[in-house]
Structures are given as C-alpha cells and as structure tokens.
Design a protein around this nucleic acid. Structure first.
Lengths: 345, 345
DNA sequence: TTGTAAGCGTTATCAC
DNA sequence: GTGATAACGCTTACAA
C-alpha cells in the first residue's frame, strides 16, 4: 500500500513513483519534486521484499565456510564484501563447522530463491552421494540451469569438479615449503593434516609428499598426523608425533591455526623452536608474524581470492558461462624464524 | 507459476498444495500423496521470495560488527547462529570496519524490509546526529514502531541507550583486572585503549581509572595510549608508552588482539614478559592461552552473549516488549603467565 | 477437506 | 512523460 500512498499524496500514479525511484531521468523535473516531497513527508522506504520478489532475485549471496573463526577466512570475506558492495549484493554466511552437507542442500538455496548464488570456501565433505537427483554430473535441477556456484580456496569433491574455483596451487606451495625445510637440512619432516574427511588440506599433503619423494626422503606413515584443523587438534597431533621414534625434526602444519597449537604444545614439551624443532605453517594469517618466534608460512592472497571468487560468481549469476577451470592465484613462502637447521643430534 | 504447475499435475488447487506445504495435517492422506508425488516429479521448491513477501517478513537478521576478523566475535556469532537456526533466521553480516554509520542507515534496513531485526555488536560511532528525523528518542519511523534492535557486547552511544543490550560489566571487569596488577605490586600501569571514536573500550578505561584512583595511584595522561584495535594499533601504542619516563611496568590492553600486538612490540624492544613488564588483555580469545607466555585476560562468555542477544531480538521481533535494560553476563579474570611482579627497579 | 479468489508492493508493458 | 493495469508466487479468508 505504500507506493500507493506516496502516489496519492504526490498526486501522481504509482508508476510515476516507481519511475522516480528507478530511473528519475525519465521523470519531469516538476513531477520529481512533487514525488520527492511526498516521500519525505511519509518517510516512505521501498519494500525490498516486494521489489526482489517482483524482480525475481534476492540480491543475496550465500558464503559457506567451515569456520568463521579462522582469521584467514576473514581476509577472504573482506574481498568478497568489497565486490559485493559494488555489485549490490548482501552476504549471508553459513558455517558448516564439521558436519557434512549434501550438495542438494546448497543448490536448493538457489532454486528456492533464498539467494542468487553460492560461494563455497574450502572444504566440502567428499561424502556426497553421486548423482542423487537434482544435480547429476551434467547437472540441472530437473531441466533448470546449474546453480551459480564458485569455489574459493580449495580443491573439491569430485562432484564439484565442474565448478569454477579460485585458489593458490596448494600442491606446489606445499612442495615449495617442504623444500625449504629440506634445504635447511631436515630429513625427518612431519606433517599435520586436517581430518581426512576434509579436503582442505589434501593438496597440501600431496605437495609435501611430492617434495619428500623428489628429494629421496622417506615419508614414514607415522610422521603424518591427522587432527581437526584447530589448536586442540594440532596439540593432539604434536603429542602423537613426539611419541614417534625417531621423531621428526620439523613439522609442517596444514594451516597457521594448527601451527599455533603445535608451537604451544612443543614448548610445553620443553622444546625450543627452531633450535630443537622447526615449525612451518600455511596461510600467513595476521597473527603469524607476532608469534614467538614469528612463523614461517605460505602466504595466500586472501582478499584477492575473495574478490576474484565473488567477481566470477557475479558473472555466473549474470548468465555468463564462466567455465569450470580453476583460477590459480600466486602464493609466496614467507620465511621467518620458526624454521632453522635441525639439531646436531 | 510453480505452485500452479504442481497443483495442475496433482489435480488439486493451488490452495491445497500450499496447505500441504504449511499444514499437512489439514490435508487428507490421499490428497497428500498426490501432491507429494507431483512435487517429486517436478522437483518443485517453494519460492522463498514470494513466501516472505506474502508473509511480510524476511527471516533475515543483520549483525553489524566492526570486524569479523576478531576471534572473539566469532564466538559471539556462533551463539547467534545457534539460536538463529532454531528460530528459522538467516544471518546477514555487515562489517563497519572503522567507518561511521548513521543510525538511520540501520533502522532503514528494517523499515525497507531488508531484514526483520538488527544486532549491533560492539562499537557504534558516537557521532550520530541527535534526533535527525526518523528515530527521535521516543522514536518511531513517522509513527511506525521502533525497529527491533539489540546490542551485544558493549556500552553504546547515548542515542541507543534505550535499546536493550547483553554484555559483561566492562567497568567492573576492567577494575578487577587492574586490581590484579596492583596486587602484584605495580604502581605505574599503562592502558592501551581503542580509538576515541570507538565506544568499544570506553567502559574498560573507566574501570581501569576507577581501580587506580581507588588504590590511590596516579593515572598519568601519558600512560594511556590510543590506537586502532588492531595489532598494528597496539604496536604504535606500545612504542609511545615505552618512550615515556618513567614508563609503566604493566600494560593493560583493551582487548586480546591488541595484547598480542603489544607483546610482540615489547619483545622487539628487548623486554621480557612478565619479568620486565606485565601484559593484560581482555576477551580471552582462543589464542590467548597458546601465546608465549600465555596471556592473563578477562574472559567473556562469547557464545552466551550471542545466544542471549539473539533470543532477545527474536522476542522483540515477535512483538514483545523486552525493555531497555542491559543484561549483564558474568566475566572471569583468567590469570596466566603474562603478568607478574614488577621488576625490582 | 477442498476450491475460489483477493491481495501483498513492486515493476514492466502498454497505450495515451 | 505519464497513467492504467497485468503480472510475480504465495497465503488465507471464506464459501462450498
């Protein structure tokens, strides 16, 4: 009833009010003033609900991520927001924590018009049933188009392999980081990965293995410890690694958060970093450089990842075919003081 | 057109399909099956846009906060999400960074039906013009109701003082923390606050001053340093404090993030913590205990704050009068190893 | 228990 | 430039 009231007060038709709102240049100066006056008088605010309904779009984008707590994602989000603001989107965040979401749950968000598109940041569970209904591999929701989805940061489940993504080359990056440790003289290098149900760190583990193999070094099974990608998870993993014999002289953690937990646990065990054992992280979150010692880690351009992901999504929503290839953004090994030569032994 | 198609295929009216969706118990078993079959066949998903429009509500709540990066807010968000899920709301996040938003910009979110309610986490700028239009102190958007807004975490601008909030007693908490330092023997205690444009840390500074005064200690102007509530901000502040003479033997930081920056800068200056100088934080983010040394800080029940805030908002949206009093949740001083006796001097 | 039909606030397509 | 008016997809009296 609201545009109607404004129209009545201004003495024009509702069409004119609508025009005033959406393309004022098509309204005569004099009329414009009348409408403006009426709007001020009534305190009218256009009903976004009705507008979106009519237009058939929500102007909402859902971002799905494992945990907002991670400062790395905060960086990615910032990039997403920047583009979202420019493009007129609001961002809805869904945290998966550690539970498994079916892919259909994502796509339904779009088909039921809760959002115009979806960004998947990092791990999705690989436990999605193949071809169960709405999104087979050549996809389509009973004939409708594929939902606009772009993946940020990480390698993904096979079902998602046809969707575009923006990320660093995790494998190369991890290999490069591992080589840094090897160059320092380490031979026994441990790796703390995420849970095996998470894809977040899969590529990183691959890179680690590759660098080890290529250097002719053994990758003992008991040098790879698995844990939740949390401080607690890393603690448990370190506990496990320290119990091995011989134990690693360096630990590569699949992300910085885990590196922080690892460093703490190592200190509690009475070890000095890097004199007794080296620690390496991944992400270069803002805390990495203020740790004691500052953490050697692989930097990802978080904001850039966010921006590009969102930009690509916008194009997909706009109907462009954005292809399915991953866009690889550059990483950078940041050498600080948590890595050094192994102890004389 | 969609419910229509389903209705046609099922051989019933659209009203029946709608009923099946919203109150299946009012549909005869046999009919129910027909509808279900049709829905499966078509892959129909109700159009949330149309539904919300019709119902006049968005099922969205906007959370406005200075920065998602802060792990403390991540905890609060978790609490908000838990309740939101139960109550059927999705959460839209708006990051203010460091810019000043007008209050009208918030309230318009509700009046233009972009969301059903608003949660304001921590600082809002105090620079909002008084009584400029839509929301005077006895408020109302040209006669409409006050928008449902609940404030989480912090003391607020005078214009918002009539809105309900959920938070710890910052003043008492900060006073208690300061007394801990005094008890350890410190007399010269510095305070690193947020920017003066931010209300985030106002109450905490009050508490600090109160405890100092009450102990008969001087609060020198040059022992209070101001900076952005970031690692960088804290570094600058420490730099300033260390240049004072005599300089403080302990530094109370208005939050843990700043404490992390402070610790790093102190170490760079060659000072040992706590032997040479003590550091105290606020929030007890999850990183606090893995720092070296682990950080003494004031713990806030982040998730609980989030839950209660959201619960209260839900009631407000439901039309209940939830009053304007703040709900105070308990804080707890967590003593770790970053605080100790002052140096003999 | 089911169907008919009004209406939610916009935008878009026409004529004028 | 402006004004009628028909959608958009759904919920909900009210009638049958």
């Amino acid at each position: 009833m609201s545009i109607k009231q404004v129209a009545k007060i201004a003495g024009v038709s509702i069409a004119t009010v609508s025009r005033y709102l959406n393309s004022p240049e098509h309204v005569r100066e004099k009329t414009r003033r009348k409408v403006q006056e009426a709007i001020l008088q009534t305190g009218y605010a256009p009903n976004a609900l009705a507008r979106n309904f009519r237009r058939g779009r929500t102007s909402l984008v859902v971002v799905i991520l494992p945990s907002v707590g991670d400062p790395f994602f905060a960086g990615v989000m910032r990039g997403i927001w920047r583009v979202a603001r420019e493009e007129g989107y609001s961002i809805l965040i869904r945290e998966t924590q550690f539970n498994t979401l079916e892919f259909d749950e994502y796509s339904d968000i779009v088909f039921s018009k809760q959002a115009d598109g979806i960004i998947l940041l990092a791990s999705t569970s690989p436990f999605m049933k193949e071809g169960n209904g709405k999104l087979g591999k050549n996809g389509g929701h009973k004939g409708e188009k594929l939902p606009p989805i772009v993946i940020g940061c990480e390698t993904v489940a096979p079902q998602l392999s046809h969707y575009p993504s923006v990320r660093v080359d995790n494998e190369s990056a991890a290999a490069e980081a591992t080589r840094h440790l090897i160059r320092l003289g380490h031979r026994r290098i441990g790796f703390i990965s995420g849970l095996h149900t998470s894809l977040l760190t899969r590529g990183r583990e691959q890179g680690y293995r590759q660098a080890m193999t290529e250097a002719g070094l053994e990758v003992a099974d008991n040098w790879i410890a698995e844990g939740r990608q949390t401080i607690e998870g890393a603690r448990g993993a370190v506990h496990y690694l320290l119990a091995q014999s011989p134990r690693p002289t360096a630990i590569f953690c699949a992300n910085d958060e885990m590196a922080m937990g690892a460093m703490h646990e190592l200190r509690r065990a009475g070890l000095r970093i890097p004199e007794d054992i080296s620690v390496l992280g991944f992400d270069d979150i803002r805390y990495a450089e203020v740790l004691d010692p500052p953490l050697t880690t692989v930097a990802q351009p978080a904001e850039e990842i966010g921006e590009h992901t969102m930009q690509r999504l916008c194009r997909a929503i706009g109907g462009d075919d954005i292809g399915g290839e991953p866009e690889i953004v550059p990483h950078r090994l940041v050498i600080r003081e948590s890595t050094g030569a192994p102890p004389a032994d």
